[in-house]
């Protein structure tokens, strides 16, 4: 089973968080799976980790509709952070609004990290959700 150091789940819906956690357990060995209720909490954690030189998560699951700071605002802030490693960000949404997809694509093109787009419901974690190294090389 694939081993990972840390994974973030940023979503205000406890059921989705539960679901992702459950699916991750089946496909990856990871001790630190952290859940955040909105983008602000997650970005604050990331800033703190960078300051304290704590290794950053390899994968982030990111919901779009959240209070305080939504997924897009989180991405704006995230891209400003001084991160050298490429992180896989799985944007998850129940929205079928094409504008959300376009927005994701814009971010994907200007982003140094790997960006995936996943529509709810999710039944399975794909390998590409967790790893892109093989494909990249």
């Amino acid at each position: 089973m694939k081993k990972m150091n840390s994974i973030f789940i940023v979503d205000d819906d406890p059921i989705t968080v539960f679901g992702i956690q459950k699916m991750l357990k089946a496909s990856v060995a990871c001790e630190n799976i952290l859940a955040f209720h909105n983008g602000k909490l997650a970005i604050d954690q990331l800033r703190q980790d960078i300051e304290n030189s704590i290794p950053l998560p390899e994968v982030i699951f990111l919901d779009i509709n959240m209070p305080i700071m939504d997924g897009w605002e989180f991405l704006e802030e995230f891209l400003k952070l001084p991160i050298e490693d490429k992180i896989i960000i799985n944007v998850i949404t129940s929205s079928i609004d094409p504008s959300d997809y376009h927005k994701w694509n814009e971010f994907r093109l200007k982003c140094f990290h790997y960006l995936n787009f996943k529509n709810k419901p999710i039944f399975k974690i794909e390998t590409t959700d967790l790893s892109r190294i093989n494909l990249a090389s």
Binding site: I15, T16, S95, K120
Partner: peptide, 20 residues
């Protein structure tokens, strides 16, 4: 959009939980 988004998020949860 609101309706589709809100109802979809619930139905997505149902599907996922039932699958589990």
């Amino acid at each position: 959009h609101i309706v589709s988004h809100n109802l979809r998020s619930h139905s997505a949860n149902f599907s996922m939980l039932l699958d589990f």
